[in-house]
């Protein structure tokens, strides 16, 4: 019996991807695309130095964002799971974390722009405190603002899975570690972190795939001055170069799958869940 799930996945996931792969071999004129089987799109992609730079930039954003979301996400989850004692407060504080998600992520992102601008709140505060004399230019339309927005948008995707795994840790294990004379740091490093690995890994997959597939955050927060793979695809679509966009999308998909494959080799999520 073909399960409904298999059917849904075939129609809405597998078929579109197959279509993208097919179109990536097609050809394009200035305003039309025509069926063909040619490697032009890939040849151009791999032949251009820009492609490598853009992919490198995409990895850079993913890497730095991952470090920050992990540090913040882990800390928040740790606080919620181990420092907040009552379940009621845990739930209340956890829900508090999700409140920003009541607004669209584009609005949350764009609201940084007036805040970080040359005459924005951040700069005027810093100047009035005497920290700086001139407004800081790098606060907005820079890699800093892009990564800041990413961290802001995606930290919760780290908090939730880590918090979830932490809640399953048997508290007696922590007590046992303390009884055996472990310091707080030793308990954290040898007990909590190994047991939270599956949560960390799930959060990592969320953050890495979201950042690598993004185009809108990079466009707005860098003032269109930086590029990642998503923007490359968006530009191609804007110029009606669908086959070229598809080829880039296929390469991006393969790259992301390879990254996830690598991550899953490090931690066996199924075994540890």
């Amino acid at each position: 019996m073909a399960s409904p799930l298999a059917l849904v996945l075939t129609v809405f996931l597998v078929a579109p991807i197959v279509m993208i792969v097919i179109v990536s071999f097609w050809g394009a004129t200035e305003f039309s695309i025509y069926p063909a089987f040619q490697f032009d799109n890939y040849a151009f992609l791999f032949g251009s130095e820009v492609t490598y730079r853009v992919f490198l930039n995409t990895f850079k954003y993913a890497g730095i964002t991952w470090v920050f979301t992990l540090l913040i996400g882990f800390t928040v989850a740790y606080f919620l799971a181990f420092h907040v004692r009552s379940l009621k407060w845990q739930i209340a504080l956890f829900l508090l974390c999700t409140i920003p998600f009541w607004t669209s992520n584009i609005i949350r992102m764009i609201s940084w722009i007036p805040f970080l601008g040359r005459n924005g709140l951040a700069n005027s505060t810093l100047i009035s405190w005497g920290v700086v004399d001139e407004p800081l230019e790098w606060l907005l339309f820079s890699d800093f603002s892009v990564i800041l927005a990413f961290v802001h948008l995606y930290t919760l995707f780290m908090v939730v899975p880590i918090f979830n795994t932490m809640m399953r840790i048997d508290k007696s294990l922590i007590e046992a570690a303390t009884d055996a004379g472990a310091t707080g740091w030793q308990t954290l490093w040898h007990v909590v972190i190994p047991l939270t690995k599956p949560g960390i890994m799930i959060g990592t997959i969320f953050v890495v795939t979201l950042v690598m597939g993004d185009f809108i955050t990079v466009r707005f927060m860098s003032g269109s001055q930086s590029a990642n793979v998503g923007r490359m695809i968006q530009n191609d679509i804007g110029l009606l170069q669908y086959p070229s966009a598809s080829a880039t999308a296929v390469i991006l998909l393969v790259t992301v799958l390879m990254v996830i494959g690598l991550l899953l080799r490090l931690v066996d999520i199924r075994k540890e869940l």
Binding site: I113, G117, N119, G120, L140, F141, S222, G223, S224, Q225
Partner: peptide
């Protein structure tokens, strides 16, 4: 010029150009 930091941003939509100018960026 771009590498030397001449540009604050690039704009694509009408409203972006208005905001860049109005905010003094």
């Amino acid at each position: 010029a771009k590498k030397a930091g001449q540009f604050r941003a690039f704009w694509k939509s009408f409203s972006e150009s208005v905001e860049l100018m109005a905010s003094g960026e």
